[in-house]
Amino acid sequence: MRIRPEDCPITPAFNLIGAKWTGLIIWHLLKGSLRYSELQQALPGISPKTLAERLQTLENEKLLERNVIPAKPPRVEYTLTQRGHALSEVFAAIERWVALDRQLT
């Protein structure tokens, strides 16, 4: 039996978090708020354009919020929303699977 992608129950999740770098951004933000520059340092190889696009998408999907901190110069921090934090169980399950897979291979 073939299931069309739009009928698969996990398609919406992969549409949100399946893009390259998106999972890693969320994984880092599960540990706490980070500034743009801290995310860049945590993700060697990501281009500034891609990071900005992924953050904008996550903000549009209400998985994170962008907080402007009044300072000179102004600082911006990114924090997961309640919806974003709900992914912690998913990421914990993936971490457990990776650990188990390493034991089995």
Rank of each mutant, 00 (worst) to 15 (best):
P73C: 13
E6Y: 07
K62I: 06
P5T: 09
D101A: 15
Q56A: 10
G84H: 01
A71V: 05
P12F: 03
E6M: 08
P73Y: 11
R96K: 15
E59F: 09
S47I: 03
L104H: 12
E95F: 15
V98A: 09
T22L: 07
D101M: 09
R4I: 02
N67M: 03
E53K: 13
Y78H: 08
C8I: 05
F91S: 00
K49I: 10
A71W: 05
Q40P: 00
T50Y: 02
Q40S: 08
C8E: 14
P74K: 10
K72A: 12
K20R: 07
R75W: 12
R96I: 01
D7V: 00
F91V: 00
T50S: 14
A13Y: 12
W97S: 06
Q40N: 01
R75M: 09
R2Q: 08
P73G: 08
N15P: 00
L87M: 06
A86Q: 11
C8S: 13
L16A: 06
Q41M: 15
T81K: 00
T50L: 14
Q82Y: 14
L24D: 14
K49A: 14
Q41C: 15
E38K: 10
P74F: 05
I3V: 15
Q40H: 05
C8P: 00
V90S: 07
I46W: 03
Y78M: 04
K31P: 02
L63F: 09
L29D: 01
T50M: 14
K62W: 12
G23L: 04
I94P: 03
Q82T: 13
A71Y: 06
L39D: 04
D101E: 15
E77Q: 07
R2E: 14
G84D: 04
L29H: 02
R4E: 11
T79R: 14
K20V: 11
R54F: 05
T50C: 13
L100T: 09
R83T: 09
Q103Y: 07
D7E: 09
I17M: 07
L55P: 00
P9V: 15
E6H: 14
E53D: 15
I69L: 10
W21E: 07
I3N: 10
L80W: 02
P70E: 07
T79Y: 07
L87S: 03
L87R: 02
Q56R: 14
P12D: 05
A13F: 11
E6L: 11
G84K: 01
P73I: 08
A92H: 09
I3F: 13
I3H: 11
Q103V: 06
L87P: 01
F14Q: 08
L30R: 03
I69S: 05
E89K: 09
R4T: 08
G45Q: 03
A42F: 02
P5R: 14
E89Y: 06
W27Q: 14
Y78P: 00
P70F: 03
I94L: 10
D7L: 09
L64E: 02
E65F: 08
L64G: 01
A19L: 09
A86E: 11
E89M: 06
E6I: 08
T22D: 08
Q56I: 10
E53P: 00
T81L: 03
S47G: 11
Q82S: 15
N15K: 08
V98K: 12
E77A: 07
V76P: 10
S47T: 10
S37A: 07
L64V: 05
R83A: 13
D7N: 06
